[in-house]
């Protein structure tokens, strides 16, 4: 599951200021997270700064290749009138639109949508958990060699800032990880949690088992 953040405004403006812009917003996962208000404020600013917003489309699930292909045909007229496309979605939406426009333009040269420049309006951030369901603070690193057997069901890869497999680094203070994030966001030391958990279930012996190594070829 993914969340997005508006790209720095200066970056965006440096690309599109003063141009004819086609705006595409994806509200499909907006139920998860899309900075709608920030985007609308930015668009307002953009409009006031002499950039022509040819069309501002609010769509959903741009990641769905089939729908997006259908819809791009519906927008053909406006696309023809614009020079740049800014897409407010996760990285997947941008890739899908870009690929479709590229296909259309390589098939037919009369096509209205040749050589459009596409800019992502958002940066996509990784969100805990898989897609679909509401995120929890559980996370899976999809390492391909689940270590949860050794760690009382607490993932050392995602609950330890260094993804250590064989025990704590010694950097934790009062149970908190040494990686104290800005604004007081501090994560608990994953290995302390693992130790306590194994202690409660009487399986501290697991910790003495073989040294564990990541196999990155599985990633």
């Amino acid at each position: 599951m993914l969340i997005t953040q508006l790209k720095p405004k200066e970056d965006l403006l440096s690309f599109i200021s003063g141009e004819k812009v086609f705006i595409l917003q994806c509200y499909g996962c907006a139920e998860v997270f899309l900075p709608k208000e920030e985007i609308n404020l930015f668009l307002e600013e953009l409009n006031n700064s002499g950039t022509l917003i040819v069309k501002n489309i609010i769509s959903d699930y741009l990641c769905n290749y089939e729908y997006t292909k259908l819809r791009i045909n519906l927008w053909a007229e406006e696309l023809k009138k614009s020079e740049k496309i800014v897409i407010f979605s996760c990285g997947i939406g941008v890739q899908v639109v870009s690929t479709i426009l590229n296909q259309v333009s390589s098939i037919s040269h009369q096509s209205p949508v040749t050589s459009h420049q596409i800019y992502p309006g958002c940066d996509t951030l990784y969100l805990n958990g898989f897609q679909g369901l509401t995120p929890f603070n559980f996370d899976c690193a999809q390492c391909g060699q689940c270590f949860l057997n050794y760690t009382g069901g607490i993932c050392p890869l995602t609950s330890c800032a260094k993804s250590l497999l064989n025990g704590p680094c010694g950097g934790a203070k009062n149970g908190k990880c040494e990686v104290a994030g800005p604004a007081g966001i501090v994560m608990d030391c994953g290995w302390e949690k693992i130790y306590k958990k194994l202690e409660t279930i009487g399986r501290l012996d697991i910790l003495k088992e073989v040294i564990k190594l990541r196999d990155y070829s599985k990633r």
């Binding site: 990641c63 990285g91 391909g144």
Partner: peptide
């Protein structure tokens, strides 16, 4: 063991011309 899917998302299992529509959620598109 989980199968790594590289930050795939919703309908992103599509790929076209060998390009995966996946997102690594790197935070700096």
């Amino acid at each position: 063991d989980s199968i790594p899917q590289g930050g795939q998302h919703c309908l992103s299992l599509y790929d076209e011309e060998g390009i995966h529509f996946r997102c690594a959620a790197c935070g700096q598109c």
